[in-house]
Design a protein around this nucleic acid. Structure first.
Lengths: 130, 130
DNA sequence: TTAGATATTCAAGTTAACTTTAAGTCAAGG
DNA sequence: CCTTGACTTAAAGTTAACTTGAATATCTAA
């Protein structure tokens, strides 16, 4: 039962097979074993793809994601480079959450107000919770 | 005193002047008035640029940002298209915050654990707050 | 008034992250 | 065996968002 072809993995993870091959080419995913030249995957790869997708949405580049994943996979625990990256990213994530909340306020207000400019709009700028 | 040249705006907003011209070309920023052929800006443009930057970090495309900004600027309040976009985006922002929190947990844990795979790591996956 | 910084346009170049295409090869059903 | 659909590679094409270059103009300070 374990051992899926690329099409099945693609279906489960919600990405095209071409993307999976691309990730392998840029060393974001390890080369899977092959049967008759075709890639055969274990179910974990689906979770890898989900983590990659999540990280991307949060603004990590594929380069950064590779560093993080490789550090995880290396078996020697996170190294210094990875540690620093993670710390930096944690800070960025904190700021991201703040910005998301600010932007939510602007959008929520945009749904109801009739200001003619963002600048002139007290609520959007100052964040009254109206 | 009001009336800044492009270089000053660029300095204040922390973007290159070429980006400001680019935003104007794609109708993300309105054409400013000119003196002797050179662009002259009012201070509000700096806040516009900050909003654009913030929105970009949150995953909005410049196309989406244009729609939102134009709706704000139109003076007729948000229209239907904008309203729907804002509602969709609000939902996405909610999800983004959830993911950011999940990712924070993974990274925080990555700083201390020695798991050899993301899959095998109970804490990263299940989110013990340890 | 003249040097040097800063501005202008337009077109072409860049980078990340895919996607598509061409030309095949493999696996399963009839 | 033959067809069909999913797989293979390598290389070229695509899109968003800028960035750079070249040639020219204008502003500003000595």
């Amino acid at each position: 039962m374990p051992g899926m072809k690329i099409g099945e993995v693609a279906g489960l993870a919600g990405v095209p097979a071409s993307t999976i091959r691309y990730y392998e080419r840029i060393d974001l995913l390890p080369e899977p074993k092959r049967i008759g030249g075709q890639r055969v995957y274990q179910p974990e790869v689906v979770e890898d793809l989900e983590v990659i997708g999540m990280a991307q949405e949060l603004g990590f580049t594929l380069d950064e994601i590779r560093t993080l994943l490789n550090s995880f996979r290396s078996g020697e625990g996170p190294n210094q480079v990875c540690r620093e990256m993670a710390e930096d990213k944690l800070e960025e994530l904190g700021e991201l959450v703040d910005k998301a909340i600010k932007m939510k306020r602007i959008l929520e207000h945009g749904l109801t107000c009739t200001c003619t400019s963002l600048q002139g709009c007290y609520v959007a700028q100052r964040g009254s919770t109206s």
